[in-house]
Design a protein around this nucleic acid. Structure first.
Lengths: 172, 172
DNA sequence: TATTGTTATACTCTATAACTATA
DNA sequence: TATAGTTATAGAGTATAACAATA
């Protein structure tokens, strides 16, 4: 799969007129970011932290972290799967998934049921409350979070960004 | 600052011909990602993990983590700054920066010197070995890491991606 | 013998309070 | 009194080994 083509328009403004003396490495206030400003990994990390921070804030009314939201979403879209399958899909290690599920289940958002086919595995399902909470969360994410991102970048750019990130995760 | 305009070209391929029966939620192998596939935060996190993983691998010859690399870069571009300034610029909390510097200094990559102006603060500088190591690391990053990212996305897209990520970190 | 869920554990990151030495 | 560096500490997130129940 290819990524939407991008037409650069806004080149970095040519060196602002040097006022008086050639200025040294920095203005004693701002530090020089140097090559860091071109490092994709650095920009990626910074953006990710900011986006998660905003997500948390937007979804605060239903008290869900990004990770918890992703679990509920996956349970809703894949009812009847077991812990290993859900965890693996999200890149969560099975041992670490136990406490996560404990938290969600103790809040009455999802339910573990022993499978009758394979009595080793736990079938996972959202409860009604879990479904309702997820719906509320989805609306909050769409209207408060993603909408503002789309506004910031422009919808076409948001889609292109998503495509590039997915491509990196998949093919890099 | 605005972001380079993007012209989408590759829309998601229209629903592949449904072969026989309408297929259920999943094929019992692949899970349905559902709305997760559209969540920018999720894509951001996944891409960031992959990029850091690759960074680590590419820079393995000089044994630097992304965070350590960013510190050395900043020291090189801003000699004579103190711990508070460097840490704050990178979003590292001062208490957590102490152990990081201990590690770099014990490897002979940088040096703390008490400032003669303000004897509370430590002036930070790269050692010759630190500078040499940074140069090696920069070459590894450029030729092994960033070059492959540029190859994957296309250079124009890579630049557009960087601009959007920076914009999110700055303005979102 | 292999797999599912689990426990225990450890290591990294991140976050806060409080200490010391300077200012 | 405020600030720089530091210590201690606690909490997430992530990683591995090993166990009981089941296949």
């Amino acid at each position: 799969m290819t990524v939407p083509k991008v037409t650069p328009i806004a080149k970095p403004p040519r060196a602002a007129r040097k006022e008086t003396l050639a200025e040294p490495a920095s203005v004693a206030g701002e530090l020089m970011m140097g090559e860091l400003a071109q490092l994709l990994g650095y920009a990626l990390k910074r953006a990710q932290l900011r986006v998660f921070e905003d997500f948390l804030q937007c979804v605060a009314p239903v008290q869900l972290t990004p990770a918890q939201f992703s679990v509920l979403l996956l349970l809703d879209n894949n009812p009847g799967r077991n812990q290993t399958e859900i965890a693996a899909t999200l890149g969560i290690l099975r041992p670490n998934f136990v406490a996560m599920l404990d938290a969600l289940e103790s809040r009455g958002l999802c339910q573990r049921t022993r499978s009758s086919n394979d009595r080793r595995s736990h079938i996972l399902m959202l409860t009604d409350h879990g479904r309702a909470t997820l719906m509320r969360a989805k609306k909050l994410v769409a209207t408060r979070h993603e909408a503002r991102l789309s506004e910031l970048l422009g919808e076409d750019n948001r889609v292109a960004l998503l495509a590039m990130l997915a491509k990196i995760a998949r093919e890099f």
